[in-house]
Amino acid sequence: MNLKERRRKLIAKIKIGQKQLGLDDATYRALLLRVAGQDSCTKLGVLGLEKVLAELTAKGFAPAAKGGAVPKRRQSADAMLRKVEALLAELGYHWNYAHAMARGMFKVDRVEWLNDAHLHKLVAALQIHANRKKREAGHG
């Protein structure tokens, strides 16, 4: 994960923590200023963001577990499921996203229940999405 992605994920967690702890904007900005010396996450680097996240955790913020369990793998699908997992990680998504795609594309609730042909199509769709996301971010 590159620095930009790391910052984005930290900011997202901090915003979730702000909401979970019920901090109004003034209280939230005061916490940022006290902990990291800035009144906005966008002005902070990774270290500052990590300090803020640690402070929110100390105040009782409990980040939710990663979304979606890793599916059980049958041998014929193992390589494709590893590819799905790698693409999800690259996109910053959880397994629940892939399960939702399986439901939307094939009316199958779980990725591990897809047949091999459907798994190939799911990987292709994820790869297209990843390529589009890279292009939109100016990386390709």
Rank of each mutant, 00 (worst) to 15 (best):
N2L: 10
N2K: 14
L3G: 09
L3P: 12
K4T: 13
R7A: 02
R8D: 09
K9A: 13
L10M: 10
L10H: 04
I11A: 02
I11S: 12
I14K: 01
I16P: 00
I16G: 02
G17D: 00
G17N: 00
K19M: 10
K19W: 01
Q20I: 06
Q20L: 09
Q20P: 00
L21Y: 08
G22I: 11
L23D: 04
D24A: 08
D24S: 07
A26E: 15
A30K: 12
L33I: 05
V35S: 02
G37S: 01
D39H: 06
D39M: 09
S40H: 09
S40G: 00
K43W: 11
L44H: 02
G48I: 05
G48A: 13
L49C: 04
E50V: 07
E50N: 04
K51H: 10
A54G: 03
A54W: 07
L56W: 03
T57A: 09
T57N: 04
K59R: 13
A62W: 00
A62D: 13
A64P: 03
A64L: 14
G68Q: 06
G68F: 15
A69H: 12
A69T: 10
V70N: 01
V70K: 15
P71H: 02
P71S: 07
Q75A: 14
A79N: 05
A79Q: 15
L81K: 02
R82Y: 13
V84H: 08
E85N: 03
A86K: 15
L87I: 02
A89S: 14
E90L: 00
Y93K: 11
W95S: 05
W95K: 04
N96H: 14
Y97P: 14
A98M: 04
H99F: 05
A100P: 06
A100T: 08
A102S: 06
R103A: 02
R103V: 03
G104P: 02
G104K: 11
G104Y: 06
M105A: 05
M105G: 05
F106G: 00
K107P: 07
V108D: 01
E112W: 08
W113I: 06
D116G: 10
A117K: 11
H118E: 15
H118T: 02
L119S: 03
L119A: 00
H120E: 08
A125M: 07
A125S: 15
A125N: 15
A125W: 05
L126Q: 04
L126N: 12
Q127H: 07
I128L: 11
H129P: 07
A130R: 14
R132Q: 11
K133P: 14
K134V: 03
R135Q: 13
A137H: 03
G140M: 14
